[in-house]
Protein backbone atom coordinates (compact mmCIF):
# COMPACT_ATOMS: atom_id res chain seq x y z
CA UNK A 1 0.00 0.00 0.00
CA UNK A 2 1.03 3.61 -0.50
CA UNK A 3 0.73 6.25 2.18
CA UNK A 4 1.24 9.95 2.52
CA UNK A 5 2.90 11.08 5.72
CA UNK A 6 2.98 14.58 7.12
CA UNK A 7 5.76 14.47 9.65
CA UNK A 8 6.67 17.20 12.10
CA UNK A 9 10.27 18.16 11.42
CA UNK A 10 12.14 20.35 13.85
CA UNK A 11 15.92 20.44 13.87
CA UNK A 12 16.32 21.55 17.45
CA UNK A 13 14.31 22.47 20.49
CA UNK A 14 15.04 26.12 19.94
CA UNK A 15 14.29 26.22 16.23
CA UNK A 16 10.88 26.33 14.66
CA UNK A 17 9.35 23.33 12.97
CA UNK A 18 7.03 22.42 10.15
CA UNK A 19 5.21 19.49 8.63
CA UNK A 20 7.00 17.83 5.75
CA UNK A 21 5.17 15.59 3.34
CA UNK A 22 6.59 12.19 2.41
CA UNK A 23 5.16 9.61 0.09
CA UNK A 24 5.98 6.09 1.22
CA UNK A 25 5.25 3.33 -1.22
CA UNK A 26 5.02 -0.43 -1.00
CA UNK A 27 4.26 -0.49 2.67
CA UNK A 28 3.86 -4.07 3.82
CA UNK A 29 0.87 -4.63 6.11
CA UNK A 30 2.98 -6.82 8.41
CA UNK A 31 5.42 -4.00 9.12
CA UNK A 32 5.27 -2.21 12.39
CA UNK A 33 4.78 1.54 12.25
CA UNK A 34 8.37 2.11 13.33
CA UNK A 35 9.65 -0.28 10.68
CA UNK A 36 7.76 1.75 8.12
CA UNK A 37 9.63 4.81 9.40
CA UNK A 38 12.92 2.85 9.35
CA UNK A 39 12.43 2.17 5.68
CA UNK A 40 11.67 5.83 5.05
CA UNK A 41 14.77 6.80 7.00
CA UNK A 42 17.11 4.53 5.08
CA UNK A 43 15.76 6.11 1.93
CA UNK A 44 16.24 9.61 3.29
CA UNK A 45 19.79 8.86 4.40
CA UNK A 46 20.68 7.41 1.04
CA UNK A 47 19.22 10.50 -0.62
CA UNK A 48 21.52 12.52 1.61
CA UNK A 49 18.75 13.95 3.76
CA UNK A 50 18.26 13.97 7.49
CA UNK A 51 16.22 11.00 8.68
CA UNK A 52 13.20 11.49 10.91
CA UNK A 53 14.27 11.32 14.55
CA UNK A 54 11.97 9.33 16.80
CA UNK A 55 12.52 7.70 20.17
CA UNK A 56 12.36 3.93 20.49
CA UNK A 57 14.22 1.10 22.12
CA UNK A 58 12.61 -2.21 23.08
CA UNK A 59 10.07 -2.24 20.25
CA UNK A 60 7.88 -4.56 22.21
CA UNK A 61 5.73 -2.17 24.14
CA UNK A 62 7.45 -2.27 27.51
CA UNK A 63 10.23 0.30 27.75
CA UNK A 64 7.95 3.28 27.14
CA UNK A 65 10.51 5.06 24.98
CA UNK A 66 8.45 5.34 21.82
CA UNK A 67 5.41 7.49 21.24
CA UNK A 68 4.01 10.18 19.03
CA UNK A 69 0.65 11.31 17.71
CA UNK A 70 -0.83 9.79 14.59
CA UNK A 71 -3.82 11.68 13.25
CA UNK A 72 -4.53 13.13 16.65
CA UNK A 73 -4.31 9.87 18.57
CA UNK A 74 -1.52 9.19 21.04
CA UNK A 75 0.24 5.96 19.97
CA UNK A 76 -2.11 5.71 17.01
CA UNK A 77 -5.61 4.38 16.71
CA UNK A 78 -5.56 0.94 18.35
CA UNK A 79 -6.29 0.49 22.02
CA UNK A 80 -3.63 -0.64 24.47
CA UNK A 81 -0.88 -0.44 21.89
CA UNK A 82 2.34 1.53 21.75
CA UNK A 83 3.45 2.81 18.34
CA UNK A 84 6.19 0.21 18.26
CA UNK A 85 3.53 -2.50 18.40
CA UNK A 86 1.19 -0.82 15.98
CA UNK A 87 1.19 -2.62 12.66
CA UNK A 88 0.49 -1.20 9.25
CA UNK A 89 -2.39 -3.56 8.61
CA UNK A 90 -4.52 -1.05 10.48
CA UNK A 91 -4.14 1.39 7.59
CA UNK A 92 -5.45 1.42 4.07
CA UNK A 93 -3.89 2.29 0.79
CA UNK A 94 -3.96 6.01 0.20
CA UNK A 95 -4.25 7.00 3.85
CA UNK A 96 -2.85 10.32 4.88
CA UNK A 97 -1.19 10.37 8.28
CA UNK A 98 -0.26 13.38 10.37
CA UNK A 99 2.59 12.52 12.70
CA UNK A 100 3.34 14.92 15.54
CA UNK A 101 5.36 14.81 18.74
CA UNK A 102 3.72 14.79 22.16
CA UNK A 103 2.70 18.38 22.81
CA UNK A 104 3.03 19.70 26.32
CA UNK A 105 4.94 22.56 27.84
CA UNK A 106 6.44 20.05 30.25
CA UNK A 107 7.71 17.97 27.30
CA UNK A 108 9.81 20.32 25.18
CA UNK A 109 10.64 19.02 21.72
CA UNK A 110 14.27 17.98 21.33
CA UNK A 111 14.15 17.08 17.71
CA UNK A 112 11.43 16.04 15.26
CA UNK A 113 9.28 13.57 17.18
CA UNK A 114 11.53 13.34 20.23
CA UNK A 115 10.52 15.16 23.38
CA UNK A 116 12.11 15.56 26.79
CA UNK A 117 10.11 13.68 29.43
CA UNK A 118 12.39 14.16 32.41
CA UNK A 119 9.59 15.96 34.19
CA UNK A 120 8.13 12.51 34.79
CA UNK A 121 11.38 11.31 36.35
CA UNK A 122 11.35 14.30 38.66
CA UNK A 123 7.85 13.47 39.84
CA UNK A 124 9.11 10.03 40.80
CA UNK A 125 12.19 11.48 42.46
CA UNK A 126 9.92 13.64 44.62
CA UNK A 127 8.65 10.62 46.51
CA UNK A 128 7.80 7.74 44.22
CA UNK A 129 9.75 5.19 46.21
CA UNK A 130 9.84 3.23 49.41
CA UNK A 131 12.97 4.07 51.35
CA UNK A 132 14.65 0.82 52.13
CA UNK A 133 18.34 0.60 52.84
CA UNK A 134 19.94 -2.13 50.78
CA UNK A 135 20.30 -5.17 52.96
CA UNK A 136 17.97 -3.93 55.67
CA UNK A 137 14.88 -5.66 54.36
CA UNK A 138 13.03 -8.23 56.43
CA UNK A 139 12.30 -11.67 55.01
CA UNK A 140 10.08 -11.29 51.98
CA UNK A 141 7.30 -13.44 53.39
CA UNK A 142 7.31 -11.50 56.65
CA UNK A 143 5.26 -8.88 54.82
CA UNK A 144 1.92 -10.35 53.89
CA UNK A 145 0.08 -8.57 51.13
CA UNK A 146 -3.51 -9.52 50.36
CA UNK A 147 -3.65 -10.79 46.81
CA UNK A 148 -6.25 -8.21 45.81
CA UNK A 149 -3.99 -5.39 46.93
CA UNK A 150 -0.97 -6.92 45.27
CA UNK A 151 -2.91 -7.28 42.03
CA UNK A 152 -4.24 -3.76 42.17
CA UNK A 153 -0.81 -2.38 42.95
CA UNK A 154 0.47 -4.30 39.98
CA UNK A 155 -2.19 -2.78 37.73
CA UNK A 156 -0.86 0.62 38.69
CA UNK A 157 2.77 -0.42 38.40
CA UNK A 158 2.19 -1.51 34.81
CA UNK A 159 2.69 2.12 33.74
CA UNK A 160 5.59 2.39 31.30
CA UNK A 161 6.06 6.14 31.73
CA UNK A 162 5.53 6.83 28.06
CA UNK A 163 3.74 10.12 28.52
CA UNK A 164 0.84 9.29 26.20
CA UNK A 165 -1.62 10.23 28.94
CA UNK A 166 -0.22 13.73 29.01
CA UNK A 167 -0.19 13.91 25.24
CA UNK A 168 -3.79 12.78 24.91
CA UNK A 169 -5.20 14.87 27.73
CA UNK A 170 -6.92 18.03 26.53
CA UNK A 171 -5.35 19.74 29.56
CA UNK A 172 -1.91 18.13 29.18
CA UNK A 173 -2.31 16.81 32.68
CA UNK A 174 0.00 14.15 34.13
CA UNK A 175 -2.57 12.95 36.62
CA UNK A 176 -2.86 9.42 35.30
CA UNK A 177 0.88 8.91 35.41
CA UNK A 178 1.26 10.42 38.86
CA UNK A 179 -1.74 8.53 40.15
CA UNK A 180 -0.32 5.25 38.87
CA UNK A 181 2.98 5.76 40.65
CA UNK A 182 1.42 6.99 43.87
CA UNK A 183 -1.20 4.26 43.99
CA UNK A 184 1.22 1.44 43.30
CA UNK A 185 3.11 2.22 46.48
CA UNK A 186 0.22 3.56 48.57
CA UNK A 187 -1.68 0.32 48.11
CA UNK A 188 1.03 -1.84 49.65
CA UNK A 189 1.72 -2.30 53.34
CA UNK A 190 5.37 -1.48 52.68
CA UNK A 191 4.30 1.89 51.32
CA UNK A 192 2.32 3.03 54.36
CA UNK A 193 4.98 4.81 56.44
CA UNK A 194 5.74 7.28 53.67
CA UNK A 195 2.27 7.39 52.21
CA UNK A 196 1.20 10.93 53.07
CA UNK A 197 4.56 12.43 52.40
CA UNK A 198 4.80 10.66 49.07
CA UNK A 199 1.38 11.77 47.93
CA UNK A 200 1.89 15.41 48.82
CA UNK A 201 5.38 15.65 47.42
CA UNK A 202 4.58 13.98 44.15
CA UNK A 203 1.50 16.12 43.61
CA UNK A 204 3.44 19.27 44.41
CA UNK A 205 6.16 18.27 41.97
CA UNK A 206 3.60 17.47 39.31
CA UNK A 207 2.14 20.95 39.72
CA UNK A 208 5.58 22.50 39.52
CA UNK A 209 6.33 20.83 36.22
CA UNK A 210 3.79 22.84 34.23
CA UNK A 211 1.36 20.05 33.59
CA UNK A 212 -2.29 20.96 33.33
CA UNK A 213 -4.93 19.89 35.80
CA UNK A 214 -7.36 17.04 35.48
CA UNK A 215 -10.99 17.69 34.61
CA UNK A 216 -11.78 14.01 34.35
CA UNK A 217 -11.91 13.86 30.59
CA UNK A 218 -10.79 10.24 30.50
CA UNK A 219 -8.83 10.61 27.28
CA UNK A 220 -5.69 9.51 29.11
CA UNK A 221 -7.14 6.16 30.04
CA UNK A 222 -8.14 5.51 26.47
CA UNK A 223 -4.72 6.44 25.13
CA UNK A 224 -2.76 4.55 27.76
CA UNK A 225 -1.06 1.54 26.22
CA UNK A 226 -1.14 -0.26 29.54
CA UNK A 227 -4.77 0.41 30.32
CA UNK A 228 -4.05 2.29 33.55
CA UNK A 229 -7.44 2.97 35.10
CA UNK A 230 -8.92 6.34 36.02
CA UNK A 231 -9.72 4.79 39.38
CA UNK A 232 -6.16 5.53 40.34
CA UNK A 233 -6.84 9.24 39.83
CA UNK A 234 -9.74 8.99 42.24
CA UNK A 235 -7.46 7.16 44.63
CA UNK A 236 -4.83 9.86 44.36
CA UNK A 237 -7.39 12.58 45.09
CA UNK A 238 -8.55 10.71 48.13
CA UNK A 239 -5.03 10.07 49.32
CA UNK A 240 -4.19 13.74 49.04
CA UNK A 241 -7.21 14.68 51.16
CA UNK A 242 -6.25 12.02 53.63
CA UNK A 243 -2.73 13.37 53.81
CA UNK A 244 -4.03 16.87 54.54
CA UNK A 245 -6.46 15.65 57.15
CA UNK A 246 -3.74 13.83 58.97
CA UNK A 247 -1.36 16.71 58.77
CA UNK A 248 -3.95 18.95 60.28
CA UNK A 249 -4.03 17.03 63.50
CA UNK A 250 -5.56 13.61 63.44
CA UNK A 251 -2.79 11.14 64.04
CA UNK A 252 -4.70 8.19 62.70
CA UNK A 253 -7.86 7.85 60.76
Amino acid sequence: MNLTLHVWRQAQGTSGGEFVRYAVNDVNPDMSFLEMLDVLNVRLIEEGKDPVAFDHDCREGICGTCGFMINGHAHGPTARTTVCQLHMRHYDDGDELWIEPWRATAFPVIRDLIVDREALDRIVAAGGYISVRTGAAPDANAILVPKENADLAFDAAACIQCGACVAACPNASAMLFTAAYVSHLNLLPQGQPERDRRTQHMVAQMDDEHFGHCTNHGACENACPKGISLDFIAMLNRDLMRARRRRQGALVD
Binding site: H6, W8, F19, M69, N71, G72, H73, W98, E100, R103, A104, T105, A106, A168, C169, P170, N171, A172, S173, H210, F211, G212, H217, G218, A219, N222, A223
Partner: peptide
Protein backbone atom coordinates in the same frame (compact mmCIF):
# COMPACT_ATOMS: atom_id res chain seq x y z
CA UNK B 1 0.44 23.43 29.85
CA UNK B 2 0.09 23.19 26.09
CA UNK B 3 1.22 26.37 24.43
CA UNK B 4 1.80 24.78 21.06
CA UNK B 5 -1.25 22.85 20.05
CA UNK B 6 -1.70 19.90 17.77
CA UNK B 7 -2.36 20.19 14.10
CA UNK B 8 -4.65 17.20 14.45
CA UNK B 9 -6.13 16.31 17.80
CA UNK B 10 -8.77 13.74 18.47
CA UNK B 11 -8.69 12.88 22.15
CA UNK B 12 -10.89 9.94 22.99
CA UNK B 13 -12.65 11.59 25.89
Amino acid sequence: ARRIGYRRFDPEV
